[in-house]
Simulated assay, not measured.
Amino acid sequence: MAYQLVQLDIQATDNIQCPHCRQQVINWAEEQYVQPCEHTLFIAMDIGFEYITDEFEQTMRRTVDDLHANDDQVSVIAELMAAQYPEFTIYQSDLGIEGYSRYIGFTA
């Protein structure tokens, strides 16, 4: 398994920081609340992607454009878990919508 899944026990409106550099990659105090750092591979939700590096996208079975075009037929988390990136950690948190999650990938 190339990834580790970490379930965060936080509220949907809590900030999320990088485990390496401690930058707030989700920072609700900023107008642009998505603030990826150099360790961030992707920021996604069950309903699509907010950010992804080209390096990570190239290891996925499908492109983000393909996933967004067929969003009613795909599972974002399944696509992330199937990526062939060498080692990464997925932080999963509540999105604030019943049954939906946010996923943030960091380099290992």
Score class of each variant (00 low, 15 high):
2 A>F: 10
2 A>S: 14
4 Q>V: 14
4 Q>L: 13
4 Q>E: 15
6 V>A: 00
7 Q>T: 10
11 Q>M: 11
16 I>D: 06
16 I>C: 01
17 Q>Y: 13
18 C>S: 05
19 P>I: 07
19 P>L: 10
20 H>C: 06
21 C>I: 03
21 C>K: 04
22 R>P: 05
23 Q>D: 10
23 Q>H: 12
27 N>P: 00
29 A>Q: 14
30 E>Q: 13
34 V>R: 02
35 Q>S: 12
36 P>Q: 07
38 E>K: 12
38 E>W: 07
39 H>F: 05
39 H>Q: 08
41 L>M: 06
42 F>C: 03
44 A>M: 04
45 M>P: 00
45 M>A: 14
49 F>E: 11
50 E>L: 15
51 Y>L: 04
52 I>Y: 05
55 E>V: 13
60 M>E: 00
60 M>I: 03
61 R>F: 11
61 R>K: 12
69 A>K: 09
75 S>Y: 10
76 V>L: 03
76 V>C: 00
77 I>E: 11
78 A>R: 08
82 A>W: 08
83 A>V: 05
84 Q>C: 08
85 Y>W: 14
85 Y>H: 15
86 P>F: 06
87 E>M: 11
88 F>Y: 15
88 F>C: 03
91 Y>S: 04
94 D>L: 03
95 L>G: 02
97 I>C: 03
100 Y>N: 11
102 R>S: 06
103 Y>Q: 00
104 I>D: 02
108 A>V: 09
108 A>Q: 10
